[in-house]
Amino acid sequence: MTYELSTPDQWLELYGDALYRYAITRVRDPDLAADLLQDTLLAALKAKDNFMGQASEQTWLTGILKHKMIDFFRKSSREKTDTMGDEVADYKNDSFFDEKGSWRVDLSVWSKPDKALEQEEFLAVLQRCVDKLPQKMSQVFILRELDGMESEEICDVMAISSLNNFWVMLSRARVQLRHCLDMNWFNQ
């Protein structure tokens, strides 16, 4: 039995923006996100006869996009292998801790109720803070925290040479993010 799918034009109409947001949250670059969206819809067009209707159309398309994105990360992270080293190396020059390893910044109490954290307004601040991280660091953070991908899989996809480097990278990301949220949301 065959399942009724919308036409590719309708895919773009119905899910284009949602898929675009999915892509740009993870790759950050608008042109690149649009390219990934185009690749996804073209791949979907080719594969539409295999669509069995177990998932919604949008879930099916998002799944294809996710594959395209992981492929992209795999390729691009293997092209520039030296960036990882740089990001770990400057861990020593840390603006968040003094030379004795104590906090240099103040950690304010997050007093706003968690309910407030569901607002789009808060998500926008979070997005801006994630965007301030170095590119690879933010991509790793998103894969880990937004997508819940396992540590080993992220190391493989992003060509991170050791779990220790991965932990160092994420630890830095979290210190920076927490501070950014302090400054821009909790402690305004």
Binding site: R21, Y22, L37, E118
Partner: peptide, 23 residues
């Protein structure tokens, strides 16, 4: 708490962007 917020955003819309962000 940061993890909970991120995972929640991941499940709800799979993005941190507002719906005003469009192609």
């Amino acid at each position: 708490r940061l993890r909970v917020m991120m995972r929640r955003a991941g499940i709800v819309g799979q993005t941190l962007l507002p719906t005003t962000a469009t192609l």
